[in-house]
Design a protein around this nucleic acid. Structure first.
Lengths: 126, 126
DNA sequence: TTTGGTGTATTGCTCTACTAATACACTAAC
DNA sequence: GTTAGTGTATTAGTAGAGCAATACACCAAA
């Protein structure tokens, strides 16, 4: 179940997007499963339907879900794979940012790698 | 000379901060050099003095520059080094973002490294 | 064809970030 | 002490994002 943090600076619709992505990845919703209706989810999250609609729209635009007119929203067949690809694309953006910073500082790739490893080591990633 | 992109979503004061950092790094302004006065820069960039003031204030808060009352703004002695540290901190933030994404995807550190290397290789970083 | 379920469009409120106009206060040099 | 230069404070306008109230349009099943 998605939880909304009202006091977070992250917009509610964004929290919903991320929550749905997590649930799809976790298998709560499998391919072609029907998602909760906009209205139902709006009620259970105590939020305006438009806020849910915006989240669903963005998920649909990204190809993660699709609509059947008059029926509801469903999970796209390959959306788990797609989400992985999206995640990689997101990571690539951050890496590009890092590279941009590195270049303005005249750091070479070896130095960048060293910094990356250092932070990674700190973090106890599995 | 700093250029302002009016149509950019990046706030003007932010563009000025980054521009100044670049110029200091490039040696346009060395340690204890005096920066253009708030008014002068405001005129030459066709911007309100408060906008410049905000940029200078943030640079001062970050320790990159300092003010002499009634005289102007000057470059801090070690600001080139400081900027390098700041850059590393910025990079670390991005790395943390990457790690957060990786964890939500259940990627282990080896996979993260592989992705990082792949993007790095694409980029021809020196 | 009616009913109860879908998603959608319109409109307006609120909050925040950003920027500008303007007036102020301080300092140094003459 | 006057002047011409600093940075600073106050106030207000503008634009945009986010969200909700409300009404609309569509579809499917009975």
């Amino acid at each position: 179940m998605i939880k909304i943090n009202e006091s977070s600076p992250i917009p509610i619709y964004q929290q919903i997007i991320e929550g749905m992505q997590r649930e799809i990845l976790a298998g709560v919703f499998a391919a072609d499963d029907r998602l909760p209706s906009i209205r139902d989810l709006a009620i259970s999250l105590k939020v305006n339907p438009n806020t849910i609609a915006r989240a669903y729209q963005e998920l649909a635009t990204a190809g993660t879900i699709y609509f059947k007119r008059g029926q509801g929203a469903y999970v796209t067949a390959k959306s788990a794979d797609d989400l992985l690809e999206q995640a990689k694309a997101e990571m690539a953006k951050h890496i590009h940012e890092i590279i941009a910073i590195a270049q303005s500082m005249n750091l070479d790739r070896q130095q960048v790698r060293r910094i990356f490893d250092a932070v990674l080591d700190q973090q106890e990633v599995k």
